[in-house]
């Protein structure tokens, strides 16, 4: 009798194990299928404006002027190619381009934020009496030195972040 019970138990265990295994297999295959589908979906409509003078090397985000498909775009934005003639550089049609104005406004906003943050961190009062210089470190321990020092250190971090943020949009020229 006990051996009969043991056989039953082993059969039940075997069946449940195979059930768990098949469940696991199904999970893995469906996950893999999902991943494959997601990979196919990934290159969505992420468009970056072609512009030779942008951050990231002037060969990556350019259009070939010899390709006839690019002619309309290059007529609109001549600096999408690194080989521009002087006539095209000074072509004033660009002032009518909405995309150029958008980029310029974003560039202005980025400069605004960068100048404000760094300026505010580095600023010190000019109406306060001049600080007493320390006998050992001179003016290096006064706000005249420490303000710009802090501003410079935070500027290193902020400027990098702003460059990364604006790079795909305007090319990150960012000069106050």
């Amino acid at each position: 009798m006990p051996s009969d019970v043991a056989v039953h138990v082993s059969i039940i265990i075997k069946h449940s194990l195979s059930f768990v295994l098949s469940l696991y297999e199904w999970l893995i295959t469906s996950l893999l299928r999902d991943m494959a589908q997601r990979e196919n979906r990934l290159p969505a409509n992420l468009t970056s404006q072609p512009f030779a003078g942008r951050l990231g090397g002037n060969q990556e985000f350019i259009l070939d002027p010899k390709n006839s498909e690019n002619v309309p775009t290059l007529k609109r934005v001549p600096d999408a190619s690194p080989f521009i003639s002087l006539r095209e550089i000074f072509n004033l049609r660009g002032f009518c381009e909405r995309d150029l104005w958008k980029s310029a406004v974003i560039e202005g906003i980025g400069t605004l934020l960068l100048v404000w943050s760094t300026g505010f961190i580095a600023a010190h009062s000019s109406s306060a009496p001049p600080p007493v210089l320390s006998p050992t470190s001179g003016f290096y321990s006064t706000p005249i030195f420490l303000g710009p020092l802090t501003g410079g250190i935070t500027n290193m971090i902020l400027l990098c972040l702003f460059i990364y943020a604006l790079g795909p949009v305007t090319g990150s020229h960012l000069n106050p």
Binding site: D79, G94, L100
Partner: peptide, 12 residues
């Protein structure tokens, strides 16, 4: 360096 057109420079 001829990487940016004149209108873009003025606007930027």
């Amino acid at each position: 360096a001829r990487l940016t057109s004149f209108p873009r420079m003025v606007l930027y």
